[in-house]
Design a protein around this nucleic acid. Structure first.
Lengths: 341, 341
DNA sequence: ATCATTTTTTCAAACGTTTGCATAAGATTT
DNA sequence: AAATCTTATGCAAACGTTTGAAAAAATGAT
């Protein structure tokens, strides 16, 4: 009863005393096959639960119908939104998706890329890990292109690797967010930045600093707090910051979760938001609109990035000549109560 | 320069005028191979970027080193937490993970399961889609077991399919949450439920109702709001509910996002939380602790479920005799300010 | 009965790799 | 110089499927 090894085309051929070719053609409705033979074989195959072995097909056709997705983590809303976007489009086109989480490790990223290529995936969507930036090594990424496997950077690209990418302008998002605070009249603006050295943190940090400079506001090292993107890491330093004799009147947080933690501290210490302290986050997480007060933030369109990346991949399949575009999506400033006094 | 087709063992054999067997053995450090040959071949392979074709290996060994993960969606914190948990453990054991999103569709679920089996995955982690429950069809799930592929239900199981599952007791979580409100003295408790017919919604709904019954509180149809798990869907009905002449003094929401939307409405209408209206959510999302007031909720340990599921899979590999356990994790009531007057 | 035609089936190779067994080459002993 | 023993390599089959070309079988025409 229990089929330990799956039934193959050969098993069926043996049963019908015919060749595997006949079975194959019968199952594929090949016109040159006898109608009776076809029906008999198909019925039998159905009965014994025959299912074509895609692995052998992959080998034969050098096509796996599988795409690789390499991301640094899965615990940020933005990342899962991207994957959702990818899935939305690729699902409809019959691709399977292999997901690899690098944990910001160069070694893991390299290892995964190699495994994906060994598995003969037909394309790779990759968000560069931090260690890869730091190490400066990108041989593994170039290898993908050497093998003629489409590579598409999503959200984080590696300059110098010539391929398609879809990213959001973090610098600009940060600049705009900061400027929004300034234009609303806030002058002493703190920044809850992401981990030091993380490119995405530094880009936003720079956007913040450059914006201050543009508006002739002196940069104050004391107003910078470094977080690990998690709420907890913001609590203590934020407490310290708000207890200064000259506390900030505005806060730009590297993401919404950190912003929510900061809001809690600010409220707990008796400041009013946004009258005394305005605050803006980053990501437009689902809950940001429903915090109290509702949180101004920067939308970076994770789902859209995924969908566009998938479309880019599909379009390039049809094209013969390879195009290399870098699509930089402008982030969207979303203004809510936390910055509207 | 550009290797259009990847270099194979045969290419190398041709280069060295030897047989593929020799190359294979040289690359695998087989002891019976001449030291010079070995070195030369390895160096050359390295140089031309040879990489073993896993597809052919899968075919040969009938082992794909790939596991399938089938989930209804990716946009809930709980689901991505589970996947993160899976990845944490499976990554270390050299498995690749193919992720399929069913969108609660029976057809897609069936299709994906078939594709995964066609790809000869070595195990499937599956969270049953709603349509599958509704249709009552589970042949595709039994097929997995017939093929002797380990199947592990995560978060949502299908009764009657004898296999391992790791789930959280939704009924109990809802019961406890409701009881917490009652014990705190709230009597008129509304429930923002999930989509009608969705098993997980109904389980929580039943937990809520049974708890009311236990405490001799009459069930009031007017206090039930149906949402689609998204914040937006709660706004209007919640508005209506709070405008009744006899509004609720407690709210149990099917998840934290819906709870946050409800909180906003409650506040906007001038009620104080938790003095006039207490509210509790579900999921223990990362931001729930940082809302205002911080949101009481029910933790359902998504990451843990993923990790335990992975461990269960790995353990069962070693075991010869197949075990079928259903592990029901007790959810954890997390009490915060939104229910503490 | 012979040939031509049509219909149906089989053969063999291919995809890339591994592996037991056979064989060849080289070294060592008689 | 022949026999024995190592050491190194090659052969062939296997995994499951598809496909062009060849072969076989059935049908029809002369």
């Amino acid at each position: 009863m229990n089929q330990h090894t799956p039934v193959t085309i050969k098993d069926i051929a043996r049963k019908f005393k015919c060749s595997p070719s006949t079975v194959s053609r019968a199952l594929n409705n090949h016109p040159l096959i006898n109608e009776d033979t076809r029906r008999n074989i198909q019925e039998y195959a159905q009965k014994v639960g025959y299912q074509r072995n895609s692995v052998s097909l992959s080998l034969l056709n050098q096509k796996s119908n599988t795409l690789g997705v390499v991301v640094p983590s899965l615990n940020q809303f933005h990342e899962t939104a991207m994957i959702e976007g990818l899935q939305n489009i690729l699902q409809a086109n019959g691709y399977m998706m292999t997901i690899c989480v690098t944990n910001e490790s160069y070694t893991l990223e390299k290892e995964y890329v190699e495994k994906l290529m060994a598995n003969r995936v037909e394309g790779i969507f990759l968000s560069v890990s931090q260690e890869t930036y730091d190490s400066g090594h990108y041989q593994h990424l170039e290898n993908i292109l050497h093998r003629n496997i489409p590579l598409i950077f999503i959200d984080r690209e590696f300059d110098g690797v010539p391929t398609n990418s879809i990213i959001v302008d973090d610098y600009w998002g940060a600049f705009t967010a900061t400027e929004h605070l300034i234009l609303r009249g806030f002058k002493r603006i703190a920044h809850l930045k992401g981990p030091n050295g993380l490119t995405v943190s530094e880009k936003r940090f720079k956007g913040y600093k450059d914006c201050l400079a543009k508006h002739q506001i002196a940069f104050d090292e004391n107003l910078i707090i470094t977080t690990n993107f998690k709420a907890e890491s913001a609590i203590m330093p934020m407490h310290r910051l708000m207890s200064l004799e000259n506390p900030p009147d505005g806060v730009f947080a590297v993401n919404d979760v950190v912003a929510s933690a900061a809001m809690q501290v600010i409220r707990d210490l008796g400041f009013s938001i946004p009258q005394q302290v305005a605050i803006i986050g980053f990501d437009n997480s689902p809950f940001s609109a429903y915090m109290f007060p509702s949180l101004s933030t920067v939308n970076r369109f994770g789902k859209l990035i995924g969908e566009e990346a998938a479309r880019l991949f599909l379009n390039n399949l049809n094209l013969q000549t390879k195009q290399n575009e870098t699509i930089v999506l402008p982030p969207e400033l979303i203004i809510r109560s936390s910055t509207l006094s």
